[in-house]
Nucleic acid binder design. Structure first.
Lengths: 182, 182
DNA sequence: ATCAGTCGTTCGTCAAATCGAACGTTTGTT
DNA sequence: AACAAACGTTCGATTTGACGAACGACTGAT
């Protein structure tokens, strides 16, 4: 996949998300319509300033234009995972995720009380959600892929569909949620 | 900061990391020495194909060239943080980190036993470390910035200097460690 | 139905990015 | 010390990306 094609798709996608016309975006970015049109058709070899102007007009970081889309389910149970750097067995380190470079990602600390359910609507397309259960027992995931997780479990799943968090224990639980594209 | 200057710094940095001469990199990337030289001096307005060729020769993703360097200490106590989306108080969500797009980042589950100490040597320059304490009491950080953390605390600190994790409780503890550049 | 407005594309012109060669400087080898 | 090799920079020639105008297609309003 040549870089121009990747960028073309990204621009089209982001422009549609921003609900802008090609002309409007070109005007806001300060580039010629013709230039933008060629770009979106995967033609040419844009300069970095042109791309910067477009990314700014779309209100996204430049790197958004270089994403390679991918999304998958990953679950790592508390007693699973690639154990690393376990010296003298005083410390155990387990690799849970190995995320390629991508756009902004947020980390949340989440507590759920008393066997309640929390629905989360779909995040922007391409978003991936990482959940790590610090205590308690939870049922997490998209409705058609709910997983029961116990303390120490890690679960990664696509966040661009509706999903939910449900506490299965009486007391409050801690889970750590990270959102990222991938 | 204009994009060309950012890219200039990134290329210089990555090329030095790869221990390549300007000429060698230019040859491997298939671009003229003169072009690369101008780029590294923040002149001109490179095309995306040129950047792609350079990034490929450096064996890094294109987005590595658009990083905005920053590093700081952030600590969010269990009872602190920007609380979000707390409906019906059944679920509390707290934003711990808001990471700009950047390169690969790893997530680890770490357990430390019985009041032991774990030293970690410095990671590559620019690495940031996120620590979230799921249970127990820990002392974490670079030697000159050790913080005592309790359950639910979050701590972000530069990972490019030697740092350590020390368990302050009798039983095993869980902490979640994420490494990332920023 | 007609007209005005906007949509996205195509084409010729001009400015600029890329190239290759030559340059001065530094490194290390004989 | 003298030479050779490699380093990074600077300079014209050429390719090429960005622009602006004109285009046909489509939508809505009068």
């Amino acid at each position: 996949m040549t870089p121009v094609n990747l960028i073309a798709k990204a621009i089209v996608k982001e422009r549609s998300r921003a609900k802008m016309s090609l002309s409007a975006l070109a005007a806001k970015a300060g580039v010629a319509k013709s230039t933008l049109s060629q770009l979106e058709n995967g033609q040419g070899n844009p300069s970095i300033e042109t791309l910067w102007a477009i990314a700014s007009a779309l209100d996204i970081p430049l790197s958004y234009l270089f994403e390679t889309p991918k999304s998958e389910f990953v679950i790592v149970r508390a007693d699973e995972g690639d154990h690393l750097a376990s010296d003298a067995s005083s410390l155990t380190s387990t690799l849970l995720a190995d995320c390629p470079p991508s756009r902004r990602r947020d980390i949340y600390r989440v507590t759920i009380k008393n066997g309640s359910v929390r629905k989360s609507s779909a995040h922007p397309e391409g978003t991936v959600e990482h959940a790590f259960v610090c205590s308690g027992k939870v049922k997490i995931g998209p409705d058609d892929n709910l997983k029961e997780l116990n303390e120490g479990d890690y679960f990664r799943f696509p966040g661009d569909v509706e999903h939910s968090y449900e506490s299965l224990t009486d007391n409050s639980i801690y889970i750590l949620i990270m959102e990222s594209p991938v």
